[in-house]
Simulated assay, not measured.
Amino acid sequence: MDGRDTMESSGDDFTAIASTFHLYNDNKRLTITSKDLSRKRVELIFQLEEESIYLEDDITRETFFPTPHGSFQTLLMRDRGSFRVWGREKFQQAVLNPAPYTGPRSHFTPPASTSTSTFIPPACRPPAQQSSTFQNPGRKNKSFRRKIYLADVEDDGDISAYTSVHVTINEGTGVQAIATTVQEYINSSDAFTMCDSKGVPISDSAETKDLEFWKTPSRKIYAIKNTDISKLTRNSSKKRRLEADTPETVKTTLANIEETLKVELKGVESTISGMIEEKMTELAAVVNQAKVTQVAILQNMQDAVQNLGAEATVTKCLKEAFICKICTNLPSTVVVVAACCGQIVGCGACVQTYLENNDDCLLCKSTMFGNKLVFLRGVSEILLKLSVA
């Protein structure tokens, strides 16, 4: 639902009040609203048998049949679209079963008569009974249903078709009248010009008023907006200017372009060779410098490794010298030295614990161990660094 207006529904009757449709056949054409569109009204206006009526969309080629209630499902129909009315005419039925005319009097109604003959309306008369004033009985009205493409014109002048319509063309119809019919079919405010497949406008002539011109199947007919015709004109002028160039001029131009390209290619080749040689020289210098730098780095690394090895040896020797012979850890505060043998015993706390149960030296077994001990203080920072290393 697109919200155009209020919708009414009754059974199978669905009607959009604001919708309008263009109905036509070979004899009549009218515009009708969806509220008034019904099978009975179409029957009366177009004089068709009720059970044979249906509508066909000119653009989508969809067909729409009336519902059992006699209405059309207008919600499914294209708003302001053009629909052809199909069905069997009431002509034969009216001739076989003539009925007295009882409608209102008009200029078509014959004067009252006492005759027992029955009056048949002009729309229901057979061809032989119609007046020769309005139609020549020896000439049949000719028409042809032609497919016409609606197209846009691109900026480069190419024609691009985007849809098509089927238009009924009568004998003697002018080209402008056909363009107007196309405009009415699609309900457009833009005027159209009829053109052939090359974009050349078709003008009125004796040939175009003959149906044989429109019946040619190989001829494509385009309807192009008048605002786009100027694009076709500009494109045609460019083509004429290009056609004005002689083959000799084209050959000379191509030869000049070829020579110019050769000279430019030689210059480009020389420039590229010089750039490559310069870059190779720079690259060689960079590689040589990188080699020197790498050798220096490797030498420095070798020296650093040797220094680290020496430092590691000294650190190991110091750790072995200062290590506590009782707890096998580096002393954290005081280092105890045995005066009897002059060797480092270890931590002050560990030596104190050892003396509670022993009197002889744990290194040289002297009995004078407990009486002569030397305490080294102020070496805690050195011992701390050795413990971290």
Rank of each mutant, 00 (worst) to 15 (best):
S160I: 09
P66G: 01
F91K: 15
R84C: 09
D155R: 07
D156Q: 05
Y101E: 09
P127V: 04
V167L: 08
S117M: 09
T60V: 07
I59Y: 06
S164Y: 05
D152I: 06
E62I: 12
K142W: 02
G81V: 10
H166W: 12
D156W: 00
P127K: 05
T67H: 07
S143D: 11
D152V: 12
G70S: 05
P66N: 01
P98Q: 07
F134D: 12
G87M: 08
A128I: 11
T133D: 10
R105P: 10
I53M: 06
V153Y: 03
P100A: 10
H69Y: 11
N136M: 04
E154S: 11
P66S: 02
V167T: 09
I120Y: 03
A128Y: 11
E171D: 12
R139A: 09
C124Q: 14
P66F: 02
P110C: 06
G81I: 10
H166M: 11
D152G: 04
F65C: 12
T102I: 08
E56M: 05
S113Y: 04
E154A: 13
Q130Y: 01
G174Y: 05
T114A: 14
L150F: 01
P126F: 08
T102W: 00
D158A: 12
A161C: 04
V95T: 15
D156K: 00
F64S: 06
R80F: 14
G172P: 00
S106F: 04
I120S: 02
P126R: 11
A94D: 15
G172Y: 00
D79S: 15
T163A: 04
F65S: 09
S160C: 11
D58M: 13
F65M: 13
F134H: 09
S131Y: 00
G172T: 06
T116C: 02
G172N: 03
Y101F: 10
Q129K: 11
K90C: 15
P98D: 02
